[in-house]
Computed example of a mutant assay.
Amino acid sequence: MTEQPPGRKEKAAPVIRDLASKIACGTYGPGRKIPSLRKLSERYGVSVSTARRSVKALADKGMLTFLHGSGTFVAEKRSPADRRFRIAAVAATFGVNAMNTCTGIAVNGILDAADELGIELTTIPMRFEEMSDARLEALSGGFDGVILLGGYDGILSSPRPVCAAVGLSMHDSCGGLFSLIELDPFRATELAVGFFRERGVREVAVAGHARPAHRLREQLFRDAWQSVGTLLFPPDDTPGEYRPERGIYFTCGAAALAAAEAYHAETGRELGRDYPVLCFDGHPLFVDRPHRNLPTLAINLRLAGVAAAEECLRRITCPGSASRRIYIAPELYPGE
């Protein structure tokens, strides 16, 4: 049977999804003019008519508005009448290219769920050092639910949000206040042990991080590896000396990228090709070389965003319901 070409909706869907994510993340803020149809068609590799359908679909949702003779702009107010619940997504950064960052892809999943669940999403950039119990409590008063994207649990102590709260990539539930969506650290440990054993590694250095999720990853790997080989803990959570026979397990993706960048600057070579190293949480998937050759454990972030939105809505519509910890199984990406 001859394969049918993709329909009009399928061609427009990636454009709609990326533009919606850029609007949600603030890349295109309220009142800002978006690129012309011709520029959109060139950027996304689609026809002008497909770009036009994509823009119209977002205008129909109230996200864009047309001004005759001036162009297409992000709507100043986006509160369709059929959206009942207001949810805030908080992250340290949403990135200029929303669909090429961990946070942007997770927000895209929240947006997918929002259309079906009747949710109005607001994104709020907040650096980790800006977060506090008081800031979260004040923020939560303006929404029905709040989703924290990233390791804010390393900063919060005893927050009292006044709305439903969900943490994505957090581990500490703050006494059961947060439902949590996490990369399954138990499955990740199994994959990490298998990764190093397949490469004949007997000695592994763990480069960790102070946040709760990273400490758990470190502890689980320590418990699993002690019956397999030797475990090293370099000072100050640095990777230590690189050796062909020594594996390095980065429990923090940002630390892994920094190490790969420093190695490349010093040698002109790629760390992931030269040594048996493994990175937790998928950061190398969203950056250019020399990081793309860094093996990593990662989850489907879009599905994680969907799960976060669904869990937040459950907490909103069932007041007093217990928080939950939802694990998503990771996959091992060996690098290019």
Rank of each mutant, 00 (worst) to 15 (best):
D144Y: 05
E241M: 14
S157M: 13
R17Q: 14
L19M: 07
T123K: 00
R83P: 04
S321N: 04
V204W: 00
A308Y: 11
Y327M: 14
E336C: 11
I328S: 05
Y275T: 12
G142Q: 13
E310D: 10
A92T: 12
I181N: 08
L301Y: 08
C174W: 01
L139N: 08
V90F: 03
G29W: 03
N108M: 14
P80N: 13
L271S: 11
E3S: 14
S36M: 05
M63W: 12
A262Y: 10
P330H: 01
I155F: 04
H171S: 10
D274G: 09
R86A: 15
D18V: 06
A329R: 09
V90Y: 03
V74H: 03
P319W: 05
E218Q: 11
L177D: 03
G240H: 02
G45C: 07
A165N: 02
L37S: 08
P212A: 05
P295S: 13
A210T: 13
A106C: 15
F73I: 07
N97L: 11
T123W: 00
R135Q: 11
R243E: 15
P159K: 05
R86N: 11
A138L: 10
A304G: 12
R292W: 02
A329P: 00
G247W: 00
G229A: 08
A24Y: 00
S47I: 10
Y263S: 07
L139G: 06
I110K: 01
D60W: 04
R32D: 09
K11R: 15
T93C: 05
F186I: 14
C163N: 08
A89M: 04
D288F: 10
L37N: 07
V107I: 01
M99D: 05
P161L: 06
A51V: 02
D236S: 12
G272Q: 01
H264P: 02
C25V: 09
V287M: 09
S49A: 14
R86G: 08
A262G: 09
L232F: 10
R215S: 01
V204P: 01
A98D: 02
D281Y: 08
S49N: 12
L67C: 10
A255H: 11
R215C: 04
V306I: 15
E270M: 15
D274M: 09
E241H: 13
I299L: 12
G45E: 07
L67S: 12
A254L: 14
V162Y: 02
A210V: 11
S79N: 13
G142I: 03
A308S: 15
G29R: 14
L313F: 10
S140H: 01
F143R: 06
G154S: 01
A24P: 00
T65Y: 02
Y28R: 00
G154A: 03
G7N: 15
L278R: 05
P334R: 06
F66S: 14
H214Y: 14
L220N: 05
G272S: 06
I34M: 07
A59E: 15
T103W: 07
G7W: 09
T251L: 08
I155Q: 06
R269E: 11
C279F: 04
G167A: 14
L111F: 03
E270V: 13
R217H: 04
R187P: 00
F66A: 14
A298Y: 11
A192V: 00
R32E: 11
P159Q: 09
P159R: 05
V277Y: 06
Y333G: 00
H214Q: 13
Y44E: 02
